[in-house]
Design a binder for these strands. Structure first.
Lengths: 203, 203, 203, 203
DNA sequence: GATGAATGAGCCTTCATTCAT
DNA sequence: CATGAATGAAGGCTCATTCAT
């Protein structure tokens, strides 16, 4: 709470934002410390006042990125009451919000993905936990479905399998969007996905 | 056609296979030229007799990998006549065959994906064409659907959108499988996907 | 004489003590300015209010260390009157006192030694004068011997050579003690050295 | 025995010699890899083909240096039969030979010494074993003495203590010689040391 | 053709020193 | 005066590529 700490935290965040920016543009393994320093308008050495290594920046960025993502979706869901609406919101936010609010950072999502997958054979495995992140996401979906089933608005489907398919569809669509943004109208795609999914499970 | 050339081509392929093997195990950016050389049981310098650079190996490997993938699917489809069967086969082969026949190479798929996406901001863009590969894949699906519609076995849906969704589901499921292979029984997942997709479009 | 100046000098000394402490523990080239600052419970920048550089600290510490050493021995000798006793005291103090009174600082002696020797090919040569320190020490011994010879208590030996040998023995024994303190009982060693030396020159 | 190995070993030795040369001139911690490379007339990276790190060079050099020293002394002793002669030879070789045959490398002895002592608080302790080297040296002396006592040529003194004193004298004299080479005539000093030591123990 | 020894550009990281507060 | 955040020069090390044999 003392001003020093606030300043340091703020600056650390600033550097992190700069790093995410650069990661997004050049890819993680192509990003040099000097790039981050320049992006943050600081000296190369200053980065090490706030992060212990390049990997530290990556991991911190990774978590911040997904924490923000999670929070965005959680918040959106909490505002809804009805399971159908919650599912709609989840799909829409997952696919749309990120492009609107963090359009610049979409490249990095793919990078984090790749690195996260790669981290299985890595020293980073303990720090990355992409698996757990997916589990959380899957759980979020399952709970919506299960509540919907309990309330009788959804048919008694295998909520786990459904969650996996929905997750797969969202990720897969993102992947295609990244490659050809001009080909996809995300809003419409999201709408279609909602329709398809809800039609399939509505009672 | 002279034997020398055949030999050269054969050796180039051998190196490529070795490279793919190593890429698969260590990730592309963690693979050193010496690793490839050792895997191919040749000298480090010899690689440069067949490839101009590490990037050349990557790009050639990239294309060979996806060409093989494409061919596998194309061949499987050709053996079928009925659009429903073709769709089934496409899904099964896409999800299963790769794991069965190239189980060792699954890691590399993710890597190529990541690099392919990354190549958008890269000098490699002209050489990678991940976009075109996706287009081809999408087209394969569209043609099946369109023929099915023409034959009256499928409802007159938006075949392009359908292809995108199917592609998305396949990619997304793969992604999840890579992270938690033990969680997914691919055969069953593929079956479910077939059912869901075909039910949605069958006339 | 104004209090400010006294304060400054006192603080400078405080920092120097802290520096010697750290030098002793970590070795000189492994000691960072931040270590000294922390040991002195001051800010890193504050050191530069009292010393112009790390080298300045080293040199000042070097001189203070040996000045203290010299003073200790000189004082001990002055309390004695008889040359034999003076020689005994010199040997005992040289070998024992430092371990008893400055046990913590024994590591640093070796470090200063090494740096002092190294300084021959160094920019520090002008500041270190290890050679002169040895000369002083040798002189101290010579004067005792010469007085002893004059008084007829010692045989008319080559006092310079004797001083060198005694110095050599003291340094060499220290060196061995540093490596294996548990192997040597300094008090006993000192006693033996006294006996041997005095026997050799006593009239 | 195959030529490759011979060449590699020869080159490794060449680099080591160059490194020792530079160590000797600039001190170990002031020696940069580029200095060694230039001294060996090779590229910076080439060093790493033969040594894994700067520390590796230091440790290898350290051992080679002392191994050479040991061998020189052992060989000289073996040529003598009588304990008195062996002791004489040991003293002379220890003090003289190194200056004559490796005059250029005398600076490095001090450096290795300093580093060896410092290594007590170091990760290098396991690799350096300065303590063991001293033990070996001490043992060499003890065996000569013990044999002399057994043969009745030496008085029944404490051979361990004697060895320590002799060692101390040798090291201490070296130390002074390094600082003021012009002040000492090593041959004469060695002669005096022989006389003193032998007189003290001869039966 | 095949090889692996040699290379040096380029990277991450450290740390003595500076300077605005 | 005191401070510690900021700095950038410098160093150890890696590795894709070259080239003499």
């Amino acid at each position: 709470m003392c001003p020093k700490i606030v300043d340091r935290e703020a600056k650390k965040l600033e550097i992190l934002q700069a790093a995410l920016q650069v990661f997004s543009q050049k890819g993680i393994s192509n990003t040099k410390m000097i790039d981050i320093a320049r992006a943050a308008s600081i000296g190369k050495g200053t980065i090490y006042e706030y992060f212990s290594s390049k990997e530290d920046i990556f991991i911190t960025g990774f978590h911040q990125f997904f924490a923000g993502y999670d929070e965005m979706i959680s918040n959106a869901i909490k505002k809804q009451d009805h399971p159908s609406e919650q599912l709609k919101v989840l799909i829409h936010v997952s696919l749309e919000a990120i492009f609107e609010e963090q359009k610049d950072f979409i490249g990095i999502l793919m990078d984090f993905w790749a690195e996260g997958i790669r981290s299985k054979d890595n020293s980073m495995e303990d720090a990355i936990h992409l698996k757990e992140m997916y589990q959380n996401y899957r759980m979020m979906i399952r709970q919506i479905i299960d509540r919907g089933i309990a309330q009788g608005v959804f048919r008694p489907i295998d909520s786990m399998a459904f969650a996996s398919f929905l997750l797969a569809a969202i990720d897969g669509l993102m992947l295609q969007w990244v490659m050809e943004p001009e080909l996809f109208d995300m809003k419409q795609i999201a709408e279609s996905l909602c329709d398809g999914m809800l039609n399939g499970i509505r009672n």
